[in-house]
Design a protein around this nucleic acid. Sequence first.
RNA 1: GCCCGGGUGGCGGAAUGGGCAGACGCGCUGGACUUAAAAUCCAGUGUCCCUCGUGACGUGUGGGUUCAAGUCCCACCCCGGGCACCA
Length: 807
Amino acid sequence: MEYDVAAVEAKWQDLWEREKVFYTTEDTQRPKYYNLQMYPYPSGDLHMGHLRNYTYVDLLTRYRRMQGYNVLSPMGWDSFGLPAENAAIATGIHPREFTERQIVRMKSQLRRLGAVYDWSRELACHTPEYYKWDQWLFLKLYEQGLAYKSRSAVNWCEQDQTVLANEQVVNGACERCNSPVTRRDLSQWHFRITEYADRLLEDLEGLDWPERVKTMQENWIGRSEGCDFKIQVADGEGEFEVYTTRPDTIYGMTFAVLAPEHPLVEKLVAGTDYEESIRAYVERVSAASELERMSTGEKSGIFIGRHCVNPVNGKRAPLYIADYVLMGYGTGAIMGVPGEDQRDWDFATQRGLEIIRTVEPPAGFEGEAYTGEGVSINSEFLDGLPTPAAKRRIIGWLEKRGIGRRAVKYRLHDWLVSRQRYWGCPIPMVNCDSCGLVPVPEEDLPVIHPDVEDYRPKGQSPLALATDWVEVDCPRCGAPGRRETDTMDTFVDSSWYFLRYCDSHNSERIFDDDKVNYWMAVDQYIGGVEHAVLHLLYARFITKVLYDMGYSPAEEPFTRLFTQGMLVKDGAKMSKSKGNVVTPEPYYERYGADAIRLYELFIGPPTDDAVWIDGGVEGTARFLDRVWRLGMGEVGSLADREENRQDKAILGVTHRALRKVTSDIDRFHFNTVVSTLMALINEVIAYLRGGGQTATFREVYRLLLLMLGPLAPHVAHELWERLGYGGILATQEWPVWDEETAREETVVMVLQVNGKVRDRVEVPADIDEATAEQHALRSHRMQRWLEGGKVTRVIVRAPRIVNVVVK
RNA sequence: GCCCGGGUGGCGGAAUGGGCAGACGCGCUGGACUUAAAAUCCAGUGUCCCUCGUGACGUGUGGGUUCAAGUCCCACCCCGGGCACCA
């Protein structure tokens, strides 16, 4: 009997969808399981790299369902963003039309893989139905003071003609197009994520996430503890504040540095001989890209003709500006302590500035700056104190005099959310000459995204071209106003979509309380490690904001996170831009979805990158072929007879396989799940060749199909039906192994002499130590190695191993 | 530079509360079936040896602990990722 791949797969895909087998509603009788994959950008064609992830998610959906969970597995589209806009610029097709076409294509490809979802919950963030709630969310943040507009130096991508969040700048280049990022002074919308920095940091602890993702978030938030204190400019010309984590080294300050953009700089140099050169320096530095600023080995910077006074001893120190001091971190000014800071050391030695050590380096220390802890020296009243005590002492001293205080700083900046692009969610604000910034009233949402003629970026949002749309009356006073024309970062869309899936089509509220209470938090979240800081940090932030406002029952959105590896081909990540994609179509035609799925699972540990090998699918296709022939009675022979040892043995093998498959799925070791089933079928074939018993085989095969169901659902469903086990496989209960049946009666025990294997014997699994030792000493193969020596010890680990130590 | 991962056959990978290294698969070699091929099935497949023995060696390198080390400890090399003038 031939297996008609195309017909069988289409039949079951049709049935799962028509019968809404994986559609779900709240059901308090069963435990819920929210299984979610990071929703994709609808890029159109799926390649083998994508299919790997979809296979993992689908496997879990089906497996948890069989285990009796009420599984929520939704799908939707991260459908705003640059690709559609770029395609529109290139082809003239409207981004909406382009996007919706891609969605249709992707849905059909997911269906072809046999991936199942509750499609009734489908959402797409480019639809007004969805982005209305982005806007609502924006207004809520604005009400709470968590969204604000401010002028500041921002990252600007020349290529994309838009601002970027810090997280989108990688090594001084745009993470998307890799072109250099420059600084621009612009008025932009921000979300006050820094207000949540401590909670975002602390709550990481309770999450069942990969350690490295947690570490990346920790580093990104970059909390540091130290102290702010004031420094007077000599001759009463003002003061500035510095931040340091090492206030104990204050006696080692031999200079101070302000960031070039520091507001005090202009005042200090106005009308002096230095004015000209300082202005030139500041201009040069701010025009340079981040990349250029970092790549110079020398520390650039110049003296500004002023001195400042060290508050602890009144010592004068020259004042510099240098671009290694960043306006965006701390106070934008530092004390220069070359003895204990390597950057200050470099700066000082390049200019011949004084260096004073204020911490005793360990004996034999050969480095330049000593940045470790130790005992204070050359520090008057701090001398002799170890670093932590010296810190406490000096902070107390500064506090008492009202010039300093303990301070905590973060590397994390507020989230810059406005973008000068077309294909994104409009920001629901109006600028009014008399009222200023006025929020669009909630009842006027959504602010519908207008059509325009020209999508090309020109430094301002293309929405500004839609004059009819831009010109609007002020919602407060009715005078003519202008809409905000920037759109939101698409990471806003993706920071709450998992909540919306609980109630995708609610037009009254962002989502219903009872529904999110039932489903949240996401039990298993699956996606790429590239989102470790971007999406995953923003989503945690927005969830916490919604929690604080009483909308989300969960303070953390994703209880458990799994980050899968990439698929590699020809030494590079499989991607359209690298031109190394393997398209699934030929494999569907030749081997079918099940064989592809199995190979995707088998290819290697899910956490690791895996190399695509063309011949690999053939192996899993052969395996499925054997499963089929076994089911069709084309292998070995069966008879109705009394149960014998072979029957008991194969049942034992099957139950042990079931035990391992269950625990390996739970541990996300999908590759060994497949190899376990392959080994099982090899055993079953050997069993049938020896003549099987009908009832035993039927039971073994039933368990095999149940285990195969989540992995290779089409062929498993078809066989389940043909062999008449009853019902639809997908809704059967996941079997539980029987320990008694799984127990092995005999095992092969290894006999060693001095740690080297010299013999193997089959023994009862419950053999006692004395008997095991007798086996070792009496084995005639062992005699050769025992002769002429003296047995000094016998180590017995029954029933696995006996090691005889001979001298 | 700092912080995480990771180095096992020709290839992807199994095996870590220390206990048979190389499961399972790919590839390759030989054989069966066939007029032939494909498919399928069977056997073999870490390295070494005129000694073919349940022989010696073997999990990046060098030491160590142990009856026993891929697994534990110390030092180092290489690869991948993250962070990186963050004061």
